[in-house]
Measured scan of single mutants.
Amino acid sequence: MQNSHSGVNQLGGVFVNGRPLPDSTRQKIVELAHSGARPCDISRILQVSNGCVSKILGRYYETGSIRPRAIGGSKPRVATPEVVSKIAQYKRECPSIFAWEIRDRLLSEGVCTNDNIPSVSSINRVLRNLASEKQQMGADGMYDKLRMLNGQTGSWGTRPGWYPGTSVPGQPTQDGCQQQEGGGENTNSISSNGEDSDEAQMRLQLKRKLQRNRTSFTQEQIEALEKEFERTHYPDVFARERLAAKIDLPEARIQVWFSNRRAKWRREEKLRNQRRQASNTPSHIPISSSFSTSVYQPIPQPTTPVSSFTSGSMLGRTDTALTNTYSALPPMPSFTMANNLPMQPPVPSQTSSYSCMLPTSPSVNGRSYDTYTPPHMQTHMNSQPMGTSGTTSTGLISPGVSVPVQVPGSEPDMSQYWPRLQ
């Protein structure tokens, strides 16, 4: 039975679970980093996980050691009161100082060594604690504590007292930064006198190289990059290397530039699409467009005044059976039934097929058609009795279509119309 579990990581490298990497692998990681390889490249070359490479390099940059820390136990506290007071002093002298600059000053002034120097995250935590204590304490208590930490007896009751030896409130920041720059020169002199001055200088240079600022491109470089971006948004590694040799930039910087440029292009394309949609959409909808001609068919113009009344309900007709019959029939052209047409008796099958359309009241044959006459024609229609054979009435077949029909004066039988409509 094995005491430890061995495995293979996602890159194909072998590791022992819970145990640190061998010293030979750690040394190779540092050597590759000094030669300029990126952590992701080191991870692929040595088949070590990216997190492990970053952790080893980060500890090497901070402490200069590649040895693993002790497994188990607690780390001794490195942010001692003396170190905290120095950090507060540096922050007062130059409020814009960075944590890694404070760390360098602690090393250069001999406050800490490589073994007990606090990390950048520890210094940031100390600065946050100082800021929170400043908010919790009152103004007087804060000034007393700062005077105690600074070891001075001057008056701290006013704002300019934060910067000793100065009279203009805006000047101390520059003086403090100048003092810090002077301390940086002392850093070089002190570290050069040490035993491991060369190694420390190499480590600091490598650290500065990794902690780079934003790349500033010249106009020629920007023009070359934009020209390549117009050709393709995704250049391959050969195109990037050719462009890197042409404009004297690292291939990694060119790759990052193209990634950022593609993101910018997507944002601009989104804005262009929004403007295009806004320009195509009308600002207001016309009133006429809300009524579609496919839904509402136009009603033909009436030929006679009587045809303006298109349904039985508008003429005072309360018989719903006839109203439904007229509205359900398709529109037909106007025609006239003459008196000489043969009077065919209704076929029983045809009569039964339209039995649902006729009223059940037996008085329908005896009703006159003056009910369908509009009010303004009552006088004219009353002067001509319906009993004469020459009287013409208008029957409504569908809305908007008038059918003048000659009705025999002897017997106005409704059943004569249905064979004609089939």
Rank of each mutant, 00 (worst) to 15 (best):
Q2T: 09
N3Y: 12
S4R: 06
H5F: 12
S6F: 04
S6E: 13
S6A: 13
S6R: 07
G7H: 10
G7L: 12
N9M: 01
Q10Y: 05
Q10N: 06
G13Q: 00
V14I: 09
F15L: 02
G18Q: 03
G18N: 01
G18Y: 02
R19M: 05
P20R: 02
P20Y: 00
L21I: 06
P22R: 06
P22S: 07
D23N: 06
T25D: 06
T25C: 10
T25K: 08
I29Y: 02
I29W: 00
V30N: 01
V30Q: 07
A33T: 12
H34Q: 12
H34Y: 09
S35F: 09
S35W: 12
G36I: 04
G36L: 04
A37R: 11
R38L: 05
P39C: 06
P39Q: 00
D41S: 15
I42T: 04
S43T: 04
S43I: 01
I45T: 11
Q47M: 13
S49M: 01
S49I: 03
S49Y: 01
N50I: 15
G51R: 15
G51P: 04
C52Q: 01
V53S: 02
I56H: 03
R59T: 06
Y60A: 03
Y60V: 01
Y61C: 15
T63K: 04
G64W: 03
S65Y: 04
I66L: 10
R67M: 09
R67D: 07
P68N: 02
A70R: 08
G72K: 00
G72D: 01
G73M: 00
S74C: 04
S74H: 00
K75E: 04
P76L: 05
R77P: 02
V78M: 04
V78Y: 04
V78I: 10
A79G: 08
A79K: 04
P81I: 09
E82M: 09
V83K: 09
S85Q: 10
S85K: 09
I87D: 03
I87F: 15
Q89W: 14
Q89D: 09
Y90R: 07
C94N: 07
C94H: 15
C94V: 09
A99P: 01
A99D: 01
A99L: 03
E101S: 11
I102T: 05
R103C: 05
L106N: 02
L106P: 01
L107W: 10
E109S: 11
C112D: 15
C112M: 05
C112K: 07
T113F: 10
T113H: 08
D115G: 08
N116G: 12
I117F: 13
S119Y: 00
S122L: 01
I123V: 06
N124H: 03
R125F: 00
R125M: 03
V126R: 04
L127W: 04
L127V: 10
R128N: 03
S132G: 15
E133N: 13
K134E: 15
Q136C: 12
M137N: 12
G138H: 09
G138R: 08
G138F: 12
D140N: 10
G141W: 12
G141F: 09
M142L: 13
M142G: 08
D144W: 08
D144R: 07
K145V: 07
L149T: 06
